[in-house]
């Protein structure tokens, strides 16, 4: 995620909507992608994204630059998305069906690339659908967003070993699913 200047944040804190739009432009890709990965559904992802930015707007005035702004946005996004997913996953079985309306953003790609990407996207969603919301979130933050264990722990406000355990369980589940249990247990 690109950095946001202190000036921009300060202007947004004073109610400057253009400054807030700048923040939105830099951070909305992360928020929306995360929401989409967590829910596999465009409408839900839009709802979560909107909710996240209204929360950011509401609480921006009390952001005091003690933590990094990026981590602060991550935390709001992550918590909103996971609460949503937990609610949904209580209602239905834990496997998330891939929503065919989810498509990739880059339209400039050649047809072949686009086809490969689409295939990969479906694979990713089916992988993430196997996991429970906590495991899914850790996998997204680590393997898609590239956060370190420490950054994930900080974002989720959990112990670093909890991060490790969730990732381990997630990967065990995925390996067993795609290759059979014997790859791990032999």
């Amino acid at each position: 995620m690109q950095d946001i200047s202190k000036d921009t944040i300060a202007q947004a804190q004073m109610g400057d909507i253009d400054a807030f739009e700048k923040i939105y432009n830099v951070t909305s890709g992360f928020v929306y992608s995360l929401s989409l990965r967590m829910t596999s559904n465009k409408e839900d992802a839009e709802e979560i994204t909107q909710d996240v930015f209204l929360k950011i707007h509401k609480s921006l005035k009390r952001f005091e630059f003690r933590s990094s702004f990026k981590t602060w946005v991550y935390r709001i996004a992550v918590n909103t998305a996971i609460n949503f997913s937990r609610r949904v996953s209580k209602k239905k079985a834990d496997t998330v069906k891939y929503d065919d309306t989810v498509d990739t953003a880059e339209e400039k790609d050649t047809m072949r690339d686009a086809h490969e990407k689409e295939h990969n996207e479906k694979l990713i969603q089916s992988m993430l659908g196997i996991l429970n919301p906590d495991q899914r979130l850790c996998m997204i933050l680590r393997n898609i967003e590239g956060l370190s264990y420490e950054e994930i722990a900080e974002t989720l406000k959990v112990n670093i070993n909890t991060v490790r355990t969730r990732l381990k369980r997630a990967r065990e589940k995925l390996i067993s699913h795609f290759h059979g249990k014997e790859v791990i247990c032999r």
Partner: peptide, 28 residues
Amino acid sequence: KALKKTIIEPLKDSSRHTPPAYLWNNIK
């Protein structure tokens, strides 16, 4: 090998999604 091929690499290649343009208008 299994980890790399079936998990790490596909996830690394995932693309960034952008929200539809109307979403910002709704938020505003």
